[in-house]
Amino acid sequence: MPPATDHDRVRRSYDTVADSYRERIGDELDGKPLDRALLAALVELAGADATVADLGCGPGHVAAWLAGQGVRAVGVDLSPGMLDAGRRAYPEVEFREGDLLALPAADGEFAAAVALYSVIHLTPAELPPAFAELRRVLRPGAPLLVAFHVGAEVRHLDDWWGHPVDVDFHFFAVETVVEALRGAGLTVRARLDRAPLPQEAATDRCYLLAHRPA
């Protein structure tokens, strides 16, 4: 486990920007047809009436989109401020406070999970235990969609939309994430790389579709 202060910095930073984040990012899927297509594929793979986890859910907009597709959506986030924003905006979603290294869920509880740009707040050494924990909460055969920024840098912010923060964003080589998934017993099914959209930060992105073997 990393020092608690590392995750505390992330928590405090997202608490600070929670309302601004909801206002600026809450409708982002409207302009991301590829993301919606990948999420729709995940829902189809999960099956009808599935329980799907949105890990690192922020203010819950992705979980709400998933709920709109007919699944039971559970949003998990480290930040109480983000969860409060999500509960106000999306009463149809269940929200839980938790860390990617210690998820608040039972073994095999979820029929699918998404982790869109949430692993970027983990160090490379934290990826294997995080994916092992994720495997624990997935039922056999369940799909997983992971998205992250591609590279080898760590970007630090001390100001975010005019709010004082203290947060690091880790970029990963694709092979690093693939190896961590495989090492945790998850099978990678597909990979998609894309350039940033005009409204996004200028970073290359990767999506990996994996699953827990049956």
Score class of each variant (00 low, 15 high):
residue 171 F to R: 11
residue 149 H to R: 13
residue 132 A to Y: 09
residue 59 P to F: 06
residue 181 L to M: 09
residue 127 L to T: 03
residue 151 G to I: 05
residue 159 D to W: 02
residue 71 V to L: 13
residue 10 V to M: 10
residue 163 H to S: 12
residue 34 L to H: 12
residue 168 D to F: 15
residue 74 V to N: 01
residue 192 L to K: 07
residue 152 A to N: 09
residue 183 G to C: 02
residue 13 S to P: 08
residue 125 A to W: 04
residue 12 R to Y: 04
residue 137 V to C: 11
residue 210 A to W: 01
residue 117 Y to N: 00
residue 147 A to G: 07
residue 192 L to I: 11
residue 214 A to G: 13
residue 91 P to Q: 06
residue 110 F to Q: 04
residue 211 H to A: 14
residue 64 A to I: 10
residue 58 G to V: 05
residue 97 E to F: 09
residue 173 A to Q: 14
residue 157 L to E: 03
residue 173 A to F: 03
residue 68 G to T: 14
residue 98 G to Y: 13
residue 32 K to I: 06
residue 175 E to G: 07
residue 25 I to G: 00
residue 23 E to L: 15
residue 130 A to M: 10
residue 171 F to A: 12
residue 3 P to G: 03
residue 175 E to S: 07
residue 116 L to C: 01
residue 94 E to A: 12
residue 116 L to Q: 03
residue 157 L to C: 03
residue 90 Y to T: 03
residue 8 D to M: 07
residue 17 V to H: 13
residue 109 E to F: 11
residue 166 D to S: 04
residue 31 G to D: 13
residue 138 L to I: 04
residue 197 L to E: 09
residue 27 D to T: 12
residue 169 F to M: 12
residue 58 G to W: 00
residue 48 A to Y: 05
residue 140 P to M: 13
residue 40 A to D: 14
residue 199 Q to H: 15
residue 100 L to N: 02
residue 184 A to V: 03
residue 96 R to T: 03
residue 30 D to F: 09
residue 169 F to Q: 08
residue 200 E to S: 09
residue 189 R to S: 08
residue 136 R to D: 00
residue 189 R to T: 06
residue 127 L to Q: 03
residue 105 A to E: 07
residue 208 L to M: 02
residue 168 D to M: 14
residue 11 R to D: 08
residue 175 E to T: 05
residue 158 D to Q: 09
residue 102 A to C: 06
residue 179 E to W: 02
residue 117 Y to E: 00
residue 163 H to G: 07
residue 27 D to P: 03
residue 147 A to R: 05
residue 131 F to P: 00
residue 97 E to T: 04
residue 199 Q to E: 12
residue 205 R to M: 13
residue 150 V to Y: 01
residue 66 L to H: 13
residue 187 T to N: 08
residue 3 P to T: 08
residue 103 L to E: 11
residue 22 R to V: 09
residue 50 A to F: 13
residue 202 A to M: 00
residue 130 A to Q: 02
residue 49 D to E: 15
residue 150 V to H: 00
residue 28 E to P: 00
residue 118 S to V: 03
residue 180 A to F: 03
residue 18 A to F: 15
residue 142 A to V: 13
residue 37 A to I: 01
residue 33 P to M: 05
residue 53 A to Y: 04
residue 161 W to H: 14
residue 207 Y to K: 08
residue 199 Q to P: 00
residue 70 G to Q: 11
residue 32 K to M: 15
residue 181 L to D: 04
residue 203 T to F: 08
residue 136 R to M: 08
